[in-house]
Design a binder for these strands. Structure first.
Lengths: 342, 342
DNA sequence: CTGAAAGCGCTAACAC
DNA sequence: GTGTTAGCGCTTTCAG
């Protein structure tokens, strides 16, 4: 069929020869160096087009010392398929890629779940100028592996289970406030918090603390966090809701620490014949798309993903003060799992 | 604080000196060349560790002529945020990244929506060995831009609106068969098809054709495809379902060309007081996670995403016959939008 | 089994 | 404004 000869790569030298200029002039002309005459640049361009020449990015980067690339590692759990990854993390991934692109950077992405395949040395090996870590906080081996780099100026992260380093995160306190106040506005008074607040779950603890504050400010009692272990967040939500009901504790509202759990809560409430939002109002956190189709559609607190991507990319590229935690603004997404305000 | 001097990069020459060997020996030792004595390799390794040496990937790739990278471009629509991207495409993206990783490749990912930012020249610029194109088929400008590369041996795609090239796709005929036969098994007889079957929508037309075949084989009448334009697939589903009801045509089952539309269909049916699955059975296509939380949970046809990723990566790397369309096996995911079989 | 030498294709000082 | 000259850091013949 075709010739078995290796593709004869066209180099800048050939372009130079055809355009009748020096090779370095080709480089300058094509990279937009202003000191090149428009006329020369045009001649070079023509020669390049005629030859089908394209700059070899590897050589350009080696010589220039730059990578113009940002690495994004998404932590998942062993055995987890692409469909089981939390959509929240996909959103973060998409936003970070977009932000990187806007900043003129490429995105090298890697899904990591198992020991032996962990890798965060993108900067050391000169593959990227910075790295963004995100994904499930429930893969200890993965986070342990990456722990050491979490303080670096060229590393940004979202959702790390550690508390000893700066990060990018939702404005959890404000989000919880929005949620609880909305529940109150709907006439819900006995509001329970469902979520894991162990020390390492910093985000959830911040949401819980803020929930307690808002309840207190309204002279209402807050309860202890309700949380039952389960394989997935959805299952944790189901189990927690069941435990809450079975505990006999009275409640007419639930603030869930995340949407995936809220979806499980909604399922269980439905199965137990508890009406939402009439008997019990429910609000989640994360802005999951699935919540728009749940029964009933889930009211939730959504972070500004675009902004999240920007902050993550900037932090990884050292364009912001990496020494402090950055907060992403949140907003309430009204759907139908809370009673209407009058 | 720290010294303002540029980071003094450690090279293989310094490692060589410390280990008392030649620079080329360092390269061989570290790359696992079997001709190096275990003893020498160990000495080199120690020196490298002591100096914090890491191979510069840019230099290694330039010299070796390889990239060990696959580019993945996800086509979206202008103005679309990360949360609005169809989860189906995220799943495909995740699977392709995973497959690439398993094959020893990196993944360079790029979300593209607007003219001026389109780019598919990853192979020409030696940034990747192949490219995978996926995403929404409803961005003409983007696909027109990429059209020319769709036939290449180093390019694979999913969901292109063009019909003049091989691709990777679900086994649409088999999927439609599974769906319709399941509806039939649930006692649904008057089954309508909702979806866009214009020529360029090859996937949907295949699903429609297969639906017709199965209906015919069961001596049942098939109807014309029902489809109403709308901004999003969900809206299209809502509008189409409304149109179907308003047409007065009798139906007790709906096979939807995709889950996003099915979710809209479910919403509208609920609003109109039509019971699912008792009065009308509904099945979608794509295996969207959101379907698990819809009202009722949506029975659907799901492609094997893992396999999809493998086929896409292989096709992009020329490891399979790029000249022919590859089919990804599908399976029925039973949820609750169809009547139980007896 | 290891050393010597070449050079991947480009960018960037430095000349003129 | 353009040419000359190095050399980025590595892999890979080719010797021995």
């Amino acid at each position: 069929m075709s010739q078995s000869a290796a593709k004869p790569r066209v180099t800048s030298f050939e372009v130079a020869e055809r355009a009748g200029v020096n090779q370095s002039t080709v480089s300058r002309a094509l990279s937009g160096d202003p000191s090149i005459t428009e006329q020369t640049r045009e001649r070079v361009r023509e020669a390049a087009d005629a030859l089908g020449y394209r700059v070899d990015a590897r050589a350009a980067r080696l010589r220039s010392g730059k990578t113009r690339t940002i690495a994004i590692v998404v932590i998942t759990r062993p055995g987890m398929g692409a469909t089981e990854i939390n959509p929240f993390h996909y959103n973060l991934l998409g936003s970070t890629c977009a932000a990187a692109s806007d900043m003129g950077y490429q995105a090298l992405v890697s899904f990591q779940s198992e020991a032996g395949h962990f890798d965060g040395d993108y900067v050391e090996t000169r593959q990227a100028d910075g790295v963004v870590l995100l994904g499930t906080s429930t893969n200890d081996a993965a986070w342990d592996y990456h722990h050491a780099m979490l303080g670096r100026a060229d590393v940004a992260s979202w959702g790390s289970p550690f508390v000893d380093h700066p990060r990018v995160d939702s404005d959890n306190r404000q989000g919880a406030r929005l949620a609880v106040e909305r529940l109150l506005a709907g006439g819900h008074r006995q509001i329970a918090f469902i979520g894991d607040t162990r020390e390492i779950q910093n985000q959830f603890r911040e949401r819980y603390d803020s929930y307690c504050d808002v309840m207190g400010a309204n002279e209402l009692e807050h309860g202890p966090p309700v949380w039952v272990e389960g394989k997935t967040r959805v299952e944790q939500g189901r189990l927690s809701a069941a435990a809450l009901i079975d505990s006999g504790r009275r409640f007419d509202g639930i603030f869930c620490s995340c949407d995936a759990m809220a979806l499980g809560v909604l399922e269980l409430l439905h199965e137990r014949g508890v009406g939402v939002p009439d008997e019990v109002g429910v609000i989640g956190f994360d802005g999951l798309g699935s919540g728009a189709y749940s029964n009933p559609p889930l009211t939730t607190v959504e972070p500004d993903f675009r902004q999240a991507g920007v902050l993550l990319a900037e932090a990884a590229l050292g364009e912001s003060d990496a020494a402090k935690t950055r907060r992403v603004p949140v907003q309430l997404v009204e759907r139908e799992s809370v009673r209407k305000t009058r």
